[in-house]
Simulated scan of single mutants.
Amino acid sequence: MTHFQDVLTVRNGQSEHHQSSLFALPSRITLRDAARKQLSIRRHFVGTLGVGQVVSTGHDTQVTEPSGLTLLLPLCGRLISRTADGTELRAENGSALIFSPNRRETRVQADKQKMFLAETLILPINELVIELERNGYSANTRQMLADFSVLTPNVNSPEATQLTSSALELYSEVLAGSPKLSTKQSQRSWTRLISARTLDLLRAAGLLDDRRDTSLPAAERHVRTATEFMRENHADITTIVDVAEACGVSLRRLETAFRSVWGQTPNDALREIRLQKARRDLVFADPEERVSRIAWNNGFNHLGRFANAYIQRFGESPSQTLRSVGN
Rank of each mutant, 00 (worst) to 15 (best):
M1H: 06
L8C: 00
V10H: 06
H17V: 13
S20P: 13
P26A: 03
S27F: 00
D33R: 14
A34C: 09
K37H: 06
Q38E: 15
L39V: 05
I41A: 03
F45S: 12
V46T: 12
G52M: 14
V54P: 07
S56R: 08
T61G: 05
E65V: 04
G68I: 00
L71K: 13
L73A: 14
C76F: 10
C76R: 15
R78D: 10
S81D: 13
T83L: 11
D85P: 02
N93I: 00
G94P: 05
S95C: 00
L97M: 01
I98T: 00
I98W: 05
P101Q: 11
N102W: 11
R104C: 09
V108H: 12
Q109D: 14
A110C: 03
Q113M: 09
K114P: 01
F116I: 04
E119I: 05
P124F: 08
I125T: 13
L128W: 07
E131M: 13
N135V: 06
N135P: 07
G136R: 10
Y137S: 03
Y137E: 13
S138Q: 12
T141R: 11
M144N: 15
M144A: 12
M144V: 04
F148Q: 11
V150I: 10
V150Q: 02
N154W: 03
P158Q: 01
E159S: 09
A160Y: 03
Q162Y: 09
L163A: 02
T164P: 14
S165V: 05
S165R: 14
S172Q: 15
V174S: 07
G177E: 05
S178Q: 03
P179H: 04
K180H: 09
K184F: 08
K184V: 00
Q187P: 08
W190G: 01
R192F: 09
T198H: 09
L199G: 04
D200T: 06
R203P: 02
A204S: 12
A204P: 02
D209S: 15
R212W: 07
L216K: 09
P217C: 02
A218L: 13
H222Q: 13
R224G: 01
T227I: 03
E228L: 06
F229V: 00
E232V: 00
N233T: 02
T238Q: 14
T239N: 14
V241G: 13
D242W: 00
C247M: 03
R253A: 08
E255F: 02
A257S: 09
F258M: 02
R259D: 10
R259A: 03
W262Y: 05
W262K: 00
G263S: 06
G263T: 01
T265E: 04
D268N: 10
D268H: 02
I273C: 03
K277F: 08
A278Q: 04
A278F: 05
A278E: 11
R279V: 05
R279P: 04
R279M: 07
R280G: 11
R280M: 08
D281V: 00
L282C: 07
F284S: 11
A285L: 04
P287G: 07
E288T: 13
I294L: 11
A295T: 05
W296V: 04
N297F: 10
N298Y: 08
F300R: 09
R305Q: 14
F306E: 10
A309R: 02
I311P: 01
R313Q: 14
F314K: 05
P318V: 05
S319E: 15
Q320M: 09
T321Q: 14
L322S: 09
R323T: 08
S324A: 15
